[in-house]
Design a protein around this nucleic acid. Sequence first.
RNA 1: GUGGGUAUAGCUUAGUUGGUUAAAGCGCCAGUUUGUGGCACUGGAGACCGUCGGUUCGACUCCGACUAUCCACCCCA
Length: 425
Amino acid sequence: MNLLTKAVRGTQDILPADSYKWKFVQNIMLNEANLYGFKEIRTPVFEHTELFDRGVGDDTDIVQKEMYTFNDKGGRSLTLKPEGTVAAVRAVLEHGLLNDGVPLKLTYITPCYRYEKPQSGRYREFYQFGVETFGAASPEADVEIICLATTLFERLGILDLSLEINSIGCPKCRQEYRSALKKYFEKYRENLCSTCIVRLEKNPMRIVDCKNPDCQKIAADAPSIIDFLCKDCRLHFNDVKNYLNGAGITYKINPKIVRGLDYYTRTVFEFVSSLDSNRNLVCGGGGRYDGLIEEIGGPTTPAVGFGIGIERLILLMQSQGIEIPKPNRCDVFIATADKSAQAKALSLSKILREASFYAEFDIVEKSLKAQLKYANKINAKFLLVLGEKELAEKKAEIKNMDSGEKFVISLDNNFFIEVKNILTN
RNA sequence: GUGGGUAUAGCUUAGUUGGUUAAAGCGCCAGUUUGUGGCACUGGAGACCGUCGGUUCGACUCCGACUAUCCACCCCA
C-alpha cells in the first residue's frame, strides 16, 4: 500500500465503528474524576525537550531512546509528550495554580508519544487518562487516588485486575537501600545479565525487576526496599495499607515494583491484568512523586498521581466481552418518493433536530426503495414517507420499523406534537 | 534494540506438485412490474495477488532484499 494512504507506524485511526467506545470510556473517566473533585486540564502535545529530560529523568528508557524530539523553525528543541504528568506539573507552575491553595486536583486525557516497537496494546501514539493531586503529602491522598482507580475499573465492568503496591521510600532511605543492593549484587556480578551489570553502577534497583531468569534467581534473596524505609516512609506506607484495608480494597505487596520513571517516591502501584494466557499487561500505574515539582523549579510540593492507557483498557474490555452501549439509533428517517418532497423533508428534519431528535433524510438522490433499505441499515426507529400525495393532503404515514405499526400524522402545524407523541410513546 | 509469524477485492479468507479469463463469503450497487425496509433469488462493480529483483518457456505459488503488519522479549500506558 502506498505511503500516501497509510497511517504512520504505531498509530491508528479510530473509525466510526469504534469511536463510540472511546467516547463511552472517556466520559466515564472524566465523570469519575469529577466525583472526586478533579478538574480537567489540557496541555499542549509538545513541550520543551528539557522539561522531560529533567522531569522524567535523563537515564530512563523513555528519555534515552523513545522520545519524538525535533527542532522547530525557530531552533527550539521540542518533544511530543511521552507521558502526561510532567506537562501538567509545568502548567501548574507556569500559572501559579498552587497559589490558589491546596489540594490541587487535576485530570486529563491526552495523547502521548513514544518511539517503541508497536505490539498488542502498545502504540507510538497512545491516549493516557491521568489524575494528579498536588499539595497533599498524606497517605489519604494516595488511597483516594487508588480508590478512584478501582471504582473506575468497576464502573467499566473490568473484573480481573489486581492491585499491587510498594513503597520505594524517599531519596534518603533509597540511598541506603541502593548501597545495600549494590553490595549484595556485587557478589553475583558475573552471573548477572549484561544490562544488569550496567544497572549495578547506575541504578541497582532496576536489577530487582529484571526479567532474566538468572537475575531473578539472584534477586529473589536480595534485600527488600521495605526493610530500608526510614521511619516516616514506613509509617506512611503502613497508613496506606491500613486505609486500603479499611476501604475494603484488596491488594498485594510487590516489592519488585520500581516503576520506570525517576520521579516516583514512597507509594507506587500498578494494576495488572492476566489478559489472555500468561501475558501480564500493566493497565494502569501511578504513585507518589514528592520530588518532581522541586526538580523542575517549583516549591517543594508533595504530589501523587495515576495514569491509564486507554487503548489497553479498551483491549481489556473487549477481551472480557464487556459490552459498550451502542450509540443512539436514528429516531426518524424521512424518505421522499419524488423530488418535490425534498424541501419538506429538509424542513421537517430541521424541526426534529432542533428538538434534539436524531433525524435523517436522503441526500444522495436514491430511489425510494434504496432509501428504505438505507433506513433499515442505519437501524432507524421510524420511517416517514413523503410524496406528492402527502404534500397535497398534508398527511403522511409514519411507520415503526421494528413492529411495522403505522400511524397517520399531519404535516402542518401539528406535525411536531404528533410525531413527538409517537416517538416518546 | 533482539527474536518469530504474516502480506491475495473494503473486510475475512481459498488458491491444489509453478501453467493460460485469480475464487468464495460478508459488505457495496442494481433488479425480482409500477410509492414501504429486513428474508430469499438473480445480476453487477471491485484485486496489476505488498514492492523491487532473481530462478524458469512460464511465478500469486520457488529464492533474495526491502517495506508494512502482527506477536513475543526489553520497557512501559
